[in-house]
Design a protein around this nucleic acid. Structure first.
Length: 593
RNA sequence: GCACCCGUAGCUCAGCUGGAUAGAGCGUUGCCCUCCGAAGGCAAAGGUCAGAGGUUCGAAUCCUCUCGGGUGCGCCA
């Protein structure tokens, strides 16, 4: 249950009844009524702005509306107190029984706690990573990979039907350059005199992985690759092999990060060769959004070789972009942008009204034109949200790490995963909002201290497990009643949970469904990491109180009922942390080492 | 020159789509603990939310302008 939307609905109902009774006018719009946690805990558990947002439409001062509402609220079984504050806020205090019932919800749902029906099964496409298959995944790609993957899981938890997609840019010049570098490596390996220095100069791509690709080819079918010629079909075979090899390596590295995609869409095979680019552009043409014209050079940064040229343009300015954008190269082939229009139309036609693209910071300037294209080609029905992940700087002892392969520094996603672990990579990448630059300190993320959120959150989970281990020793008989089965824990009376720290913890756990919904709505998975850190902090804090006040400890010698009630709370904390880590894709640990 | 993102405590960052006296960690200062319920605890100081206007019951949040930082800018993807 999302406690906040629950009370929002209750209050909307009360407003309806007040309208029926003639206290308020009929037909009031309650859509702006919100129920939120007050900034100050001393104000109570919930606060609503209902009186203020209704004042104008109701033609009454906020306080008058608030008084009527408060009278209704006080009749509600779950409400302990309702007070008017400030300009017309209503602060609510909710009865402890209500909160204890939320803990029971957690125990009942387990890992599924926080699952929401918000998405109503709506299909959403999340496209992420999508790096060109011309080399391995650079560690800078890890952020977008984790972000996209967790966003997808988050949306699933919020009730959407999510497709995780990767767009393979296997058409165009860059892939031809990959092919040529691959062929160069082949020739080098069968004895032709080509120095390594030719890679990165004569041949565009210097990566060792392309030499690996050549080795793999020669190992698989020596006769075929030794005799490779320059016919179109030979060139094509080389290109296909190189791309397939790179995509395999990329998939492996993503798997090491725990990232998987369900759909790989090939620019060349799924769009260009199937005529979808022509089709999409024909659609735009028919709608009158394409024309031939000459662009102005960009002011302040005119390229040296600029010359005015007539080209085929998309009228992007009609859809919110700053200039119209070219669709054709001078050789008559489509630009990348043209493919991208076709690609987004294709996603839309596959049933995705909502599309999310996760891009790197260097593509920020590209957002407007694609958004404009989506608007144009879907008749305004498609919704595109582009999430830009800012750059990650890797720091070693406070100094930025130079990403130079020659110097033997870590450069690939794989290297980094092997060094710090998948779980650290994933959780750490979410400790910053996606549009803020990120400093990733290699030492800090492995530190065992409270300023390392990975450690701090895992430690809280491990502590929960540790409490159960200790309880099992301290009172084996009582634990036998609940061992491993939370269904029996649910039979425990929770009424003994009366301490403010205990209730505070429960209230925080009860905020998980709302956190999921809000984060899913905003497409902001980082909120999960911050929430989990809050839960860990509250749990550690409550634990620490037990040092000075032994009566607050979870295990109370000689009082099995109280201990069991508190164990239920500990289990609730454990479930919520595990539930959050599951969305993030991190395995909760049962003990620290 | 233009567009987009960012600017919040000394530092690194949150701030729940417009709510009340703006929060956390680190650092600083003071006290406590040396405990395996371990990998510290409690507390204090610290702010013109870059600046100036505007919108309204109410702005760190929305709009405009200025300043500062980042990213990008016709036949690369």
């Amino acid at each position: 249950m999302n406690v906040f939307s629950h009370f929002r609905d209750e209050i909307a109902g009360m407003i309806g009844r007040l309208s029926d009774a003639g206290t308020l006018p009929a037909g009031l719009d309650t859509s702006r009524v919100t129920v939120e946690p007050p900034r100050e805990a001393s104000h109570g558990d919930l606060a609503t702005n209902a009186a203020m947002v209704l004042a104008k439409a109701a033609g009454k001062p906020p306080r008058a509306i608030a008084e009527a509402l408060v009278a209704e609220l006080r009749k509600h079984e779950a409400i302990e107190a309702a007070e008017i504050a400030g300009p017309g806020f209503i602060n609510l205090r909710v009865r402890a029984e209500f909160w204890r019932a939320r803990l029971a919800d957690v125990l009942q749902a387990g890992l599924a706690y926080g699952d929401s029906a918000m998405g109503k099964g709506e299909a959403i496409n999340v496209e992420y990573v999508s790096t060109n298959p011309t080399g391995l995944l650079h560690v800078g790609h890890a952020r977008g990979a984790v972000f996209g993957d967790v966003l997808a899981s988050l949306l699933e938890k919020a009730g959407f039907k999510v497709t995780r997609e990767y767009y393979v840019n296997d058409a165009g010049k860059q892939v031809e350059a990959l092919r040529d570098s691959f062929i160069g490596r082949l020739r080098q390996q069968i004895g032709e005199d080509i120095p390594d220095s030719a890679f990165g100069t004569t041949f565009q791509y210097p990566g060792e992985e392309i030499a690996d690709a050549a080795r793999a080819a020669l190992a698989a079918d020596p006769a075929k690759w030794r005799s490779l010629g320059r016919s179109p079909s030979d060139l094509d075979a080389a290109q296909r092999f190189a791309v397939a090899y790179m995509m395999d390596r990329i998939r492996e590295d993503l798997a090491a990060l725990g990232v998987r995609h369900e759909v790989f869409t090939s620019e060349r095979h799924d769009l260009v060769e199937k005529g979808k680019v022509d089709e999409a552009l024909a659609t735009l043409e028919k709608l009158g959004h394409i024309y031939v014209g000459v662009l102005e050079p960009p002011k302040g940064k005119t390229p040296d070789d600029w010359e005015p040229r007539a080209q085929t343009l998309f009228r992007a300015t009609s859809f919110g972009d700053d200039v119209d954008r070219p669709l054709k190269k001078s050789d008559g082939s489509w630009t990348y942008f043209a493919s991208d229009i076709a690609y987004h139309l294709d996603k839309f036609r596959r049933g995705f009204r909502t599309m999310i693209d996760v891009w790197g910071a260097d593509h920020g300037g590209y957002v407007k034109r694609v958004a404009a294209a989506v608007k144009a080609v879907t008749g305004g029905e498609g919704v595109l949200d582009v999430k830009i992940c800012q750059i990650v700087r890797f720091l070693e002892k406070g100094e930025p790490v130079r990403m130079s392969k020659r110097a033997g520094n870590v450069v690939t996603v794989r290297d980094m995963v092997e060094r710090v672990g998948k779980d650290v990579m994933r959780l750490i990448m979410l400790t910053r909002k996606n549009d803020a630059p990120f400093d990733f300190d290699l030492a800090k993320v492995q530190e065992q201290s409270k300023d390392n959120p990975v450690f701090y959150i895992q430690y809280a989970h491990a502590r929960c497990c540790s409490v159960f281990r200790q309880a099992r020793e301290a009172m084996p008989d009582a634990l036998a009643r609940i061992d491993s089965k939370d269904s029996t824990l649910m039979g425990i009376s929770l009424n003994l949970l009366t301490d403010s720290g205990e209730l505070g913890l429960i209230k925080l756990l009860a905020a998980w469904p709302r956190t999921i919904e809000a984060a899913a709505e905003a497409h902001e998975p980082h909120r999960l990491a911050f929430y989990l850190n809050d839960v860990a902090a509250a749990f550690h804090g409550h634990w620490n109180r037990g040092k000075d006040e032994p009566g607050l400890r979870f295990i109370v010698e000689g009082n099995e009922e109280l201990t069991l009630a508190r164990l239920a709370l500990v289990r609730g904390v454990q479930w919520v942390i595990a539930s959050g880590l599951q969305v993030i894709g991190v395995t909760p640990v049962e003990e620290m080492r």
